[in-house]
Design a protein around this nucleic acid. Structure first.
Lengths: 353, 353
DNA sequence: TTTAAGTATGGAAGCGCTTCCAAACAGAGC
DNA sequence: GCTCTGTTTGGAAGCGCTTCCATACTTAAA
């Protein structure tokens, strides 16, 4: 079909063209390009010259088929537009691009079923490794991935039972530490704002961390949990709900910065003083967290760095290196700012359970 | 190498296995799977049964090589973590996933040279089409893409000379219209805040739109241009610079919401009344724009929808449909909110020049 | 000089699929 | 019953590469 000509513009240069032009066999060209094995310096020079003259670009599809490895890594995140996940991907691509590996990406929309479908679709493309967000997946997803034998990293949280490996931090510990800190600083009735429509392991662990902290207080506060949409509007709504529920509430620990910032802005509209009347803390340390007035106390995780680390580990596994540990804890940091009672103290934590 | 066994888990089922199991030729299995041509209903049933029983998943790498099309679309955006671009990608993936096509993504970091490298790397993977952000690319990038003969869409702006197609809106018109509106509402000394380190076609066109509007005012205002880092902090800095430069400035049109929101928050810190003392307008309509106090007047573009449209057009082109137009204008909308003088009026615009 | 042990290279086989061609077959029309 | 047309099918060729094997050529040791 002349169609080929149209789709590809001028016909692409193949390895055999280069071989003929350099007066060597195709195998030799391949060896030069892949830098493997021994090729006489003189021959190598001739081949490279031919490559340059003909403008040869290897067809990686063919290479993938022949070599049984694609140089593609598959990543699935809930929503591409969410800063936290996008940052991980940013770190991933940075490292991958340097190493000639490319990223195939999919968005699950917070649905494990959707994730399962994407995993299935991606597997057919034979990526060399997988990155998944979170630790909640369908059984089928887990089975597919395990059966594939590919390196898999689940990110952004920790778990005892990873499919393969997990790189992240303890959302449980972070939630607990932040709650403890609020109490330590003098907040007495701390409510937790969690998300309504996007249940996932990270949000749930933060909630559980909060509950754990509540139960250990000397005066053993009853957990107060408010459910809202994960958005600025949801955070605004949380203010209304909290005040209606119990006037004594003097701090809101929101499971995401989105809600926390929404809450702060709502306080501004209502003339509620933060942190004097109401302390507000978030989670994620989005750029807006340090910009908003008052600046937001929150949990910081270097997600771009986490993405880089994930790439490193995955690539090493693809190279055949066996893994040292099934878990990499990247830790978290409490950023204590002006939206809660503070004493200007900073704390850094490993996720110690 | 027994290595293969390790990497792939249990050996994958191939098309020949299915063929044998269903007692047909490999060609027939292929025809059934691809739904092409005529296969007797009885045969089809047998094949599908075999596929199910063996759990056959086609190897898309092999298919790509044989069929000379990969079902992969390549996208390059400046930074994955920037909401605007991420939204486009979100829309893209949504449509692509439905159609069995997948997304390969790269981040250029606002560098045309980096973009060029990525284009080169991606071309080797033989994607069926390309999406690029913006209209500024190196000559080599343009050449590579044109020579490839692949469908290419440049997005988020318009241009007279696209590589192939362009889908977006006129940043020039948007910048001009917004400036006009500020003037119409009574702002008299309007400064423009542009970005310092990330020159690109969209930012530049917004600036030029602002200048064009300035020159048409009866009293012909001299453009005042302030350069800042594209961030909340940059926006805060813009306030300082503007007030120092000329106390008469009564409105800031910021080229991005990031800077505009930063400016609003800085005003809050300094006790500058918005919009009474200083009107502030942005561009992008990020989620924070409608949440901040006062809410931000800005330019809205439905970027997720734009991404969907890009996917649709690209897929149609890949199917061989010839394109109707080299340009698709998705338009923009001025969201007039409380950070500028308003009369509650709304305007919708096509990018009419 | 002979032999052994590399080193360099060409070329065939094969990766798992699509697609083309030819053959087999079925039914319609005469 | 025979030809003609159209449908269905098997199977070979080929997509562009990698990799293995065998061969040819070196060089050093004996």
């Amino acid at each position: 079909m002349g169609d080929t000509t149209i789709r590809d513009g001028k016909a692409a240069v193949r390895i055999s063209d280069v071989a003929r032009h350099a007066n060597v066999g195709a195998g030799t060209v391949s060896r030069v390009i892949n830098g493997s094995q021994s090729v006489a310096p003189e021959t190598r020079k001739r081949v490279l010259a031919a490559v340059r003259e003909l403008g040869y670009v290897p067809n990686l599809v063919a290479r993938s088929l022949a070599a049984n490895r694609t140089g593609i890594i598959a990543a699935i995140i809930p929503v591409i537009g969410y800063t936290q996940h996008a940052q991980v991907i940013q770190g991933l691509t940075e490292v991958l691009h340097e190493r000639g590996t490319n990223l195939m990406i999919g968005a699950s929309g917070h649905s494990p079923e959707m994730e399962e479908k994407i995993v299935g679709a991606f597997l057919a493309r034979r990526p060399d490794a997988f990155y998944l967000t979170g630790t909640w997946h369908t059984d089928v997803t887990r089975e597919l991935l395990k059966a594939s034998g590919l390196p898999v990293i689940e990110g952004s949280n920790l778990t005892e039972t990873p499919i393969d490996m997990v790189v992240g931090y303890s959302n449980f510990a972070a939630g607990r530490e932040l709650t403890r800190l609020l109490a330590l600083r003098g907040h007495r009735h701390i409510a937790h704002v969690t998300t309504k429509y996007e249940p996932n392991d990270r949000i749930t662990d933060r909630l559980n961390g909060y509950k754990a902290a509540c139960s250990e207080f000397p005066r053993a506060q009853q957990p107060i949990v408010i459910e809202c949409e994960n958005s600025f509007e949801g955070g605004a709504e949380a203010i209304a709900l909290a005040l209606k529920f119990d006037q004594r509430i003097d701090a809101l620990f929101c499971a995401t910065d989105l809600m926390a910032v929404g809450a702060i802005l709502e306080c501004q509209r209502r003339g509620i003083e933060v942190p004097t009347r109401l302390g507000i803390a978030g989670f994620d340390d989005l750029p807006i967290a340090s910009a908003v007035v008052p600046s937001l106390t929150t949990i910081h995780v270097d997600r771009v760095e986490m993405g880089r680390k994930i790439a490193e580990v995955l690539l090493r596994r693809v190279e055949g290196e066996s893994l040292l540990s099934h878990e990499i804890d990247v830790g978290f940091e409490i950023k204590e700012r002006n939206s809660t009672f503070t004493k200007g103290e900073k704390r850094r934590n490993r996720s110690t359970g």
